[in-house]
Design a protein around this nucleic acid. Structure first.
Lengths: 233, 233
DNA sequence: TAGGTGAAACCTGTCTGACAGGTTTGGGGG
DNA sequence: CCCCCAAACCTGTCAGACAGGTTTCACCTA
C-alpha cells in the first residue's frame, strides 16, 4: 500500500501515514497525529505533510476539518464518482459500458436484497418507488428518488462493495439521466418505467429473488433501449 | 463535479480545475496551465493550487511530474485499489464480500470475453493459464500470473469499467491470495485450481460464452471454499 | 540550409516563517 | 459539581526563496 510514488517526499510520507494507520490498527473516526508532529517525526516540512494529507483525503482514506486533527475516514464513493465522471468526459468510458456493468451488478444486488433485506429496508424501498410514482411530473425529484431507490437496494444487499460501486455511478448518472427521461416522452412510456421500479420493489418486499432479478433485468432492457433511442450510440 | 468541499479555497480550486478540463475538452495527455498561472488566474496562492493538484492526482484525474506541467491522466485503478485496501483494513469490507462482487463481475466478464476477444487476446489468456501451470511451484510468480490472467480477461471484455473494477481488487487480492494458496496444501487441490483456469481459458479461446461463464463460476465456488477452509469467516 | 547545442526561461518540489481563524482543554469561579 | 473562558493547539492560507528538472529558441557549426 505504501509503494505509491515512493520517489518523492510526498509519496514516502503518504506511505508512512498509511502504515501508521495500519500498524496502529486505527479505525474510522480515530485521530491521526497533527501536521506539526508528523513533520517533526518524518523530518519533512509541514508543506509535505499537508500535501500527503490532501492526497489521502482525496481518496477518502482520511478526513480533514479545520481546527480538528485529521481522522480515519469511512469508505465513501465520492472519489470514485469523480473518477468515473472523468473517464466519461474524456471519452475513455461510454454510457453503454456503464449500463452493462450496472445491469450485471444490480441484478445480483436485488437477488441478495430480496433475501437479506430487513423489514425497515423493504418499507424504505417500496416508499421510494411510490415516491417516484408520486413525483412523476417533476423530473428533478423523480431522478433523486430513482437514485435513492438503487442505493437503498444496494444497502439492502448487505455488501458495502455493492454500495460503493452503485454510488460510484451516481455522479455520471445524474448527468445522463435527463437524457433518458427525455426519450420517454409519452405518458405510457413513463408509466412503464415507474411500474418497473414498483415491480422490483414488490419482489424485494415479497422476498422473491428470482422475480426481483427478472424485474431488474427488464428495467435495464428498457433503460438501455431508451438510451439508444436518445441517440447515445 | 465541482461541488466537492466547495467551502474551502482548495475545494473551489479543485472545482475550477475540473471545470477547466471539461470546458476545454482536454483529453488524456493534454497539458494544464502551470501552478503560477492558475494561482494568478484564480487569485489564490500557489500552495492552494498545489494542494488541489495533489487531490486530483490522488484520484488519477491528472498526472504530476517534476519540471513538467500537469497533464490530464488516463483512467487507472491505483486509487481504487488503495481505497478498497483501506476498507478491508478498517474492517468495513470483508474478503467474502469482495469475492461475491468478483464472482458477479467476472462471470459477466468471461461471457463478454468469449464473444469479443481478439485472437491476440485469446493467445495471451491461454498463455497466462499455461504459465500458471508451469510456475505451480513458485507461489509469488503463480499469483502474478493469476492476477494477470483475470486482468487479461477483463480487457478482452472490451469494457474499461470492468478493467477498472478488477484492477481495484488487485491490491487487496495480493495480500490475501497467499492465504488461499496455503489452504490448498495437496497436489490434487493445487492441480484442480490450475485446471480450472485452463478450462476458463479454453472456453474463451473456443468462443463459448456459456462454458466460460460456467467455468468461472466453478472457479469462484472453489476459491470461496478454499478461503473458508483457511478460516476467513 | 539542416542540424545540433547551450543558455535562458520556465516549471515543479520542498522549506521556512507568519498569521488568521476554528477547536480542545484545563483551571478557576460560581 | 458544573459552567465558562482563556490559553494552548491545530488547520488553512499566504509570501518568498532556492534547488533541481524540462522546454525553448536563438545561435553556431558542418
Amino acid at each position: 500500500m505504501e509503494q505509491v510514488g515512493a520517489t518523492s517526499l510526498v509519496g514516502t510520507t503518504i506511505g508512512a501515514i498509511s502504515r501508521h494507520i495500519r500498524e496502529n490498527v486505527l479505525m474510522p473516526g480515530d485521530k491521526l497525529p497533527s501536521e506539526a508532529i508528523l513533520s517533526k517525526e518524518l523530518n519533512v516540512s509541514r508543506t509535505v505533510v499537508r500535501e500527503a494529507f490532501r492526497s489521502l483525503a482525496a481518496m477518502r482514506i482520511i478526513e480533514l476539518a479545520t481546527g480538528k486533527r485529521a481522522t480515519v475516514a469511512q469508505i465513501d464513493h465520492g472519489a470514485m464518482s469523480l473518477m468515473i465522471e472523468h473517464g466519461v468526459h474524456t471519452e475513455q468510458i461510454n454510457i453503454q459500458q456503464i449500463y452493462d456493468v450496472r445491469r450485471t451488478i444490480e441484478t445480483r444486488i436485488v437477488t441478495l436484497a430480496a433475501i437479506r433485506r430487513s423489514d425497515a429496508e423493504a418499507t424504505d424501498i417500496l416508499a421510494l418507488a411510490a415516491a417516484m410514482r408520486a413525483d412523476v411530473g417533476e423530473a428533478a425529484k423523480l431522478m433523486e428518488h430513482d437514485l435513492a431507490f438503487h442505493m437503498a437496494l444496494a444497502r439492502a444487499s448487505r455488501n458495502p462493495v455493492y454500495v460503493l460501486i452503485v454510488g460510484a455511478f451516481q455522479g455520471i448518472t445524474r448527468q445522463t439521466w435527463p437524457m433518458g427521461w427525455k426519450s420517454r416522452p409519452t405518458q405510457a412510456s413513463r408509466d412503464l418505467m415507474i411500474a418497473t421500479h414498483l415491480d422490483i420493489a414488490r419482489a424485494v418486499v415479497a422476498s422473491d429473488p428470482q422475480q426481483a432479478a427478472a424485474s431488474m433485468s427488464l428495467h435495464f432492457d428498457e433503460s438501455v433501449r431508451a438510451l439508444l433511442t436518445a441517440g447515445m450510440s
